[in-house]
Each structure stands twice: as C-alpha cells, then as structure tokens.
Design a binder for these strands. Structure first.
Lengths: 330, 330
DNA sequence: CTGTTAGCGCTTTCAG
DNA sequence: CTGAAAGCGCTAACAG
C-alpha cells in the first residue's frame, strides 16, 4: 500500500506539504504542487479514507438501515434518502439489518462509522438503537417509536390509515371484514390493528378475533391466510391486509380458487408498493409517503448534526387512500 | 466521545488490558475483565470502527455498487450478495453510483474503505474502476468487461439471450421485429443488439435500422418508443425490448392505444424483474441469473482476497427464456 | 511557502 | 497476567 509518505518522498517534499498539495488545503507553490500530484499519480497513490476520518473524527456519510436491502418496499424510501443526501453533500451507505444483533447494521451502529443513521427496520433491538444514539450520532427512526434525546421519530399515520381502509370497506357495504396481520410485535402492525378495530367499532360492527389472520408481512403469509379462509368455508366480505405484499399473496390464493377479487371478495392493502398498480385487479391500498419520509429524515438529521433537534416527540405523516379496483367499483 | 482510554482509567487498568478484556483477545483475569466491561458499560463506551480498521488495515466489509440503489432490478442481485456475504462473515455496504464521478461509490472506490467491491453500474468511469482495483481491493465487475489483473468479470450471456428472444419471436411466425435499445454505450445493450441482429440474419431476415428505437433502459423510454411506432402507423409484428422496464413501458402505450399485447403485437423483454409476471399479460422475457451472479461474485472475491484469482478472462452465465403470455400462446 | 511534530483511537508486540 | 510504547495513514498547528 502506497501512503502519502511515499508520495512525499518521491516528490522530495515533506509529508505535510504533500498533504497540502493533494488537498488544496494549504499554501503550496504551484510548482511543488504539480510535482506532488505527478508523484502521486505515478505511484498510483490512493488516500486512505479511514485514516482521514479517524483524524477528523467525521465521516461525512449517513447510513440507511433497512430490514432487508432486497425488499421491494424500500425502493421509494431509498430514492428519497438518496436524493436528499446527495443534495446535502453527504455520502450514503445502505446497510441491511438481516441477522439482527449480528448484522452489519448492528455493528455499524455500535461502532461509529457514520455521522448519522436512518433506521427503517424492526428486527433491531430497542436498546441497541437507544445506546447508539448520541450527540454525534443522531438517529432518525422510521415507523417505530423510541424515546431518546438523540432519536428523531418519524412515522406514518398507521392508525388513521388503517381506519380509513376499513371505513372505505364499510362504506362499500361490507360488514364481515377480516384482518391479515403483519409481525405481531412490530409497531406499525399494532397501530394498524388498532385502527382496524376502531373503525369496526365506530360503525357498530363488533371485532371478531376469528377474522384475524397472521401473515407476517410477507406474500406467502397472505397466501396462507387466504387459503385458511377458503378452507374454513366462511369467507369474509372484505379483507384489510396490513401490507400490500400480503394482500397480493391473498389475491393469488383467491385467484387459484376461482374467486374474482373485487367482485366476490374485496381486498385492500397498505403501503402502495409499485406492484400494487400492476396486479390484476389493481390493488386498492393506503399509500405511505415513504419518499417524503426519506427526504424529511435526511433534512432533520442534518439539522440535528448542527445541534438542532426537533421539539416534537414524534413527527407523523398522513396516509392516503388510493382507490383502484380490488374492492370493486365505488 | 468516550475512548478506550477512559474505560481503562475508570477500571484502573492500562489501555492494553482494557483492549484485551473488551475483545477477548489476550490473557486477562476474569476479575479484571469484568471490571473493564462494567466500566465500559457505565461510560457507554463505543469502539471506533475506523480506528480499528486503520490499525488492522482491514475493513472486513465488501461494498456493492449499483447504478441506482432504488432500482427494482437490483433486488435479486442484492439478495444473492447479501446472503453470500453474510455466510462468509463479511459485512456488506451498498453504495449508489448516482452522480458518477462525484458519487459516494466513486469516493469509496478511490479511498480504500472496503476489502473488495462488486460493481453493477455503467455510469462509472473505466479508469476509475481500473485504478481502484488492486491486490488488496479486488473488484467483481458485473455485466461489463474491463481487463485487469485484479478485476473479475462476470456477465450474463447477453448475446445468446437476445438471440434466443428473437429466435422465439421468429418461431412464432413474426418477421418484422423491432428492437428497443438501452443506453447506447452500455456493454449489455451492445451485446443484446448484436444478438438481435445475428438472429435476424440467421433466419434470413434483414436487419432494418428503422425498426430500432431508443429506450434508454427506462420505462418511459419504452413508452416513448411504442408511441413512436404507433405514430408511424407501421407497427412491427414483434418487439424485443432490451430490458423489462422498457417492455412494460411499451405495453402501457399499446394498451392505451387499444391494442392487445400478445394478440395484436408480441413483446419480449430481458431481465425477468419481479413485475414481469404481474403485468397484464404476463411478460415473456429472458431471465438473467442475477441472484446467482451475486453469490458467485462474493465467492470469487473471497478467493481473490486469499490471492487466488480465477483464470478465465471472464465468466459467462447463461440466460434463460421464460415464456409467458405477451407473445401470444406458443 | 515548507518541514517537524503531535496526535485521532485502537491493537499488539515486548517487557516486566 | 498486566503495562508501556510503537505505529496504522493522515491532518493541522506551529515554527522556521
């Protein structure tokens, strides 16, 4: 590995002069500078970013942690974060939380390797996050709530989103409305479930535990849940799935059973992933403003880095009903 | 920032002892160790990863650079890379090449911050990549070819994939076959275009420049191309789009024009992105083994890190024809 | 304008 | 079993 020392020696100058020349950071004569640069090129010198960061105790990068880099849902979020980060002149590194406590994400969280973090993952321990957050490492926590001076909570209005979804189903005349749930312990699943129950209640429809199915937020889970309904021979009129993936899984199952979604049974999802508009019939769903969330997170983090944290305990973004065809025409 | 020094002081031991205790890396009495760990906890000590990496001149992470983190196409690739990296005990950091020369990716490439890199991006300069590749920073380059001792080229068989696509269209009886191209300068577009021409030739069908449209690898590009065909009032019988995004864009345009894809016009794509099976009609396409590519890249890189580079100039993975409905029943 | 030098936080010989 | 000290590659006072 060729270091700045080698460059300096080759150029016949001192290390500091070499550094100045290479970074335009100090007074160097044009001639010397050129000599240094030439030496660096000939030696194929590459600065060592780690050393620089160590010295300046600043990385100029913000990290984005998602539960699974490969998930389709994160595309929009990443887009938002990416644009905002780029605009602020920071670098972005995306990390996966797969593996939980042993994941790369956990490691980078513990060892300060970024100036700030955005976390959109549920498989990361509360304590881990809490203890990682500090003055010089603010964290924007999406769709999850944790109280700490250095954590900025940003969430979408899961409760009202779910409420709207169920209300819409009810407005269409459906009364027996099932719920396909996400991971039990996840914050958003809990909120969505509450919204589901509240809407039912508000319209004088009792909540029935047997209409609740487990789907774990994945397509296969939704498929299984629908299969179960089919098996029980006691189909609900409408289904509210806690995310689009599960809704799509359920649609497949009904499709296989020869049922017409939108006619024989109504399904509404949550998230509005890209696929939602392409499935047949197009999926009615609740749109999360993920892109905006990403941008907002970056902006708030930038401010936090200046020592300026928001006052609110959490920031809640509205969710919007997107009507397509899977619940029938309205 | 609390350092290991603070911990050592608080525990009443020397720095090295503290380090040993914290990392289980040296002989420390159980009692001392406990004292150190307790002190670290109380102080909320977080090791500084940069310092560690600097000292050990090893980062234990591999980087994955894609042209756009938010693109749908990369999901599968990321999945493959993610799993393989995890399995080898390395960490993974995903970087975007948006911004080209000024991107985070470029920066991380120049400043050695990872032990190895996987690059799947076309907007990164050849020289940049070439000069970043070195013994202690091997690079796996996907779908692109660059000759260097430290670069491992892995590509999918673009030529034969395209050939198969066009051959399939011909076997269905179509003769006027259009091409919607990706970015002109991209390696895979060139190869696919060659495959397209070769198949036409092989079956005695002349290649007509006017049947070639620009689509730039994006959905809107495919849409535009189809609009153009429509406008010219001289529709081809079949279309080979250089990727699925463009094929889907074209489908939209035809849909709007009241044409039935699969009946009035045949379309075949390339990539087999997730959406392909959900559009209406489901898109016939050429599947790239991206997942496998990801896994392979990691494995080869691990070997390279041991000094063991593959002999072949490049590794070519086969592409597979996936027949669905967009070209009609076969 | 240029060189000397003191660290950034950490690991790891090498002595005790 | 524990401590002193060197040094990873780089930046930035400070002194010349």
């Amino acid at each position: 590995m060729v270091t700045i020392k080698d460059v300096a020696k080759k150029a016949g100058v001192s290390i500091s002069t070499a550094s100045y020349a290479l970074n335009n950071s100090g007074p160097v004569s044009a001639e010397t500078k050129e000599r240094v640069i030439k030496a660096a090129e000939e030696l194929k010198y590459r600065p060592n970013g780690n050393a620089r960061d160590l010295k300046s105790s600043k990385t100029n990068t913000i990290g984005l942690i998602v539960s699974d880099l490969a998930g389709p849902f994160f595309s929009e979020l990443i887009r938002g974060v990416q644009e905002a980060t780029l605009a602020s002149g920071y670098d972005l590194m995306a990390l996966s939380a797969i593996g939980g406590f042993d994941s790369t994400a956990a490691k980078f969280l513990k060892e300060k390797r970024t100036d700030a973090m955005i976390i959109f993952a549920h498989n990361l321990d509360d304590n881990l996050i809490k203890s990682a957050a500090r003055q010089d490492m603010p964290i924007a926590l999406l769709d999850r709530r944790l109280s700490s001076k250095y954590i900025i909570n940003i969430e979408v209005d899961n409760f009202n989103g779910a409420y709207k979804a169920v209300e819409y189903l009810i407005s269409l005349g459906y009364k027996r409305i099932a719920y396909i749930s996400g991971s039990d312990d996840s914050y958003d699943n809990i909120k969505r479930f509450e919204g589901y129950k509240a809407a039912l209640e508000a319209y004088g429809i009792g909540y029935a535990p047997k209409l609740c199915y487990k789907g774990n937020f994945i397509e296969a889970g939704g498929y299984q849940a629908a299969k179960l309904m089919l098996l029980q021979n006691d189909l609900p009129q409408g289904i509210f799935a806690a995310n689009d993936e599960m809704a799509i899984g359920a649609m497949e199952a009904f499709d296989e059973a020869g049922l017409k979604v939108g006619k024989d049974i109504a399904i509404i999802g949550f998230d509005d992933i890209r696929l939602a508009q392409y499935v047949d019939p197009p999926l009615t769903t609740i749109k999360q403003p993920v892109y905006e969330m990403g941008c907002l997170a970056v902006r708030l983090l930038m401010q936090a880095l200046q020592g300026d944290f928001p006052n609110e305990e959490e920031i809640i973004l509205p969710a919007e009903l997107i009507i397509r065809k899977s619940c029938g025409e309205s």
